[in-house]
Computed example of a mutant assay.
Amino acid sequence: MRSRAGLVAVCGAMLAAAVALPLGGTAYAADTAGATDAARTAAADTPSALVLTLSPGESAQTVGVERAVTLTCTPSPGGSHPAPQEACAELSAADGDLAALPAQPQSFCAMIYAPVVVTVQGAWQGERVDYARSFPNECVMRAQGGPLYAF
């Protein structure tokens, strides 16, 4: 019986919080707006470092890594990537969303099936990155990833 009383008390507290939340919503939003801006500024100053790999095949687990580069964007572009400034600018424009990288205009690729997998691991503005994507060939990979995947 005692555990049931505890459960009722917890449910009652949750219900009270749910009812009170709409009443204080405006004040909460005003308080967190400044915190969100501060968090964005802090994230922009947080080191961003990634390791990019290229593997032949349809899956990163099927065959070993053919090429690997490092890319550091914050505090300044660098690493073993051949074009760190351009790659970091492209990542910044996509807000770090690797799936949203813009396709390169005027890209023409042969329809040769030689699949490759790109993996990207590390941190982007304080957020963990663990990304993998397969492409039908390296030309399509570069057309889809632009300067970031040009390694």
Results as ranks from 00 to 15, higher is better:
F108K: 06
A150N: 15
A39Q: 08
P102D: 14
R133D: 03
E66Q: 14
E58P: 02
L15R: 02
N137Q: 10
P136G: 11
T46A: 15
C109R: 07
A94M: 03
L50M: 06
G57N: 01
A99K: 12
Q144V: 00
S92M: 05
P147T: 11
M111D: 14
A16K: 02
Q61I: 07
T26Y: 03
A60H: 05
A20E: 13
P84Y: 10
R142A: 15
G96N: 12
P147Q: 08
D37G: 08
A143T: 02
V51M: 08
V129M: 06
V69G: 00
P75A: 03
G24F: 11
W124Y: 07
L91H: 04
P147D: 14
S92Y: 01
L91Q: 04
G57H: 01
A13T: 11
M141V: 01
D45W: 02
V116S: 08
V51D: 11
P136D: 15
G126E: 09
A60W: 04
I112T: 15
P56K: 07
A39F: 06
A103T: 13
Q125C: 02
R40W: 10
G146E: 07
A49I: 03
G34Y: 08
V117D: 01
S55I: 01
T41I: 12
G79E: 01
G25N: 06
G122H: 05
S107R: 05
Y28F: 15
A143D: 09
T119D: 05
L148Y: 03
A143H: 03
P75V: 10
V63M: 14
E127C: 00
E66A: 13
A44S: 13
G12Y: 04
D97W: 01
Y131H: 14
V140P: 00
P102W: 07
F151N: 09
Q85V: 08
E58K: 12
T41N: 06
D31W: 14
P75H: 07
T41S: 12
A89H: 01
P136R: 15
A99V: 08
S55T: 12
A150M: 09
Q106C: 03
A13M: 12
R142S: 11
D37Y: 08
A110P: 13
A150E: 13
L54C: 03
G57T: 02
G126D: 11
R133K: 14
A39W: 06
V69A: 13
L50A: 04
T70Q: 03
P82G: 04
S107C: 14
L52F: 04
H81K: 07
G57C: 01
M14Q: 10
E138P: 00
A27R: 14
S3G: 00
A20R: 07
G24C: 07
P102F: 07
F151T: 08
